Computed example of a mutant assay.
Amino acid sequence: MGRIGDAARVAVAEQALAAYAQLTKPERHDFFVMLRDRFNSSPEAIRAAFAAYDADPSARTLVPLFNAVEPPRQTLLRRLNTAPGATLKLVHMRADLLKAIADDPELAPLDSDFGHLFASWFNRGFLTIQRID
């Protein structure tokens, strides 16, 4: 999804979310395992970025450290969120994840990613108050 245009990225996000919705419970577990294992931060990149920051603790070296520490799965989730109605689908995906964590606690790091992203997406500054009656 990184090397395609915006319209294509939205279409791919829609297809990916639709495909996820069709997964069975065991397939969803496998999907979460894949996210955990294949879309995790690189320990080597973190070590290298930290070594640079440790040698020169400045804003210039902090940004690469920040980028190295953030798991690529957060970027994937952000890109999935570009599809129409995706935020609610990602909330449901997190609900599936929480159920999966009950059976497999090793998936817990994924919940931190969802929590981090949702905290920024649902912050008070983005809320709109409307009267409902």
Rank of each mutant, 00 (worst) to 15 (best):
E27W: 04
A18K: 10
D30T: 13
D56G: 09
A13T: 03
P26H: 00
T24S: 14
A45I: 01
S41E: 02
I46E: 00
A13Y: 06
K25P: 08
N40A: 14
R36V: 07
S41L: 02
D54Q: 11
S42R: 01
A19N: 07
A49K: 02
S42V: 07
A13R: 03
F39P: 05
L23H: 08
P26A: 10
Q15E: 15
R28I: 01
L23T: 06
D54H: 03
V12S: 04
A52E: 09
R36G: 04
M34V: 12
N40I: 08
D56A: 07
V12Y: 10
R60V: 11
F50T: 06
L17F: 04
V10I: 15
F32A: 08
I46L: 03
K25Y: 07
R28N: 07
Q15P: 01
F50M: 12
D56K: 00
E44L: 11
F32H: 01
E14W: 00
A19G: 08
D54P: 10
F31M: 14
A48Q: 13
A49Q: 05
D37W: 05
R28D: 00
P57E: 11
A18F: 00
L62Q: 08
V10K: 13
P64Y: 08
A16R: 12
V10R: 13
Q15M: 15
P64C: 08
A16C: 13
F39E: 07
T61F: 08
F32I: 01
F32T: 02
P64G: 03
F32P: 06
L23G: 04
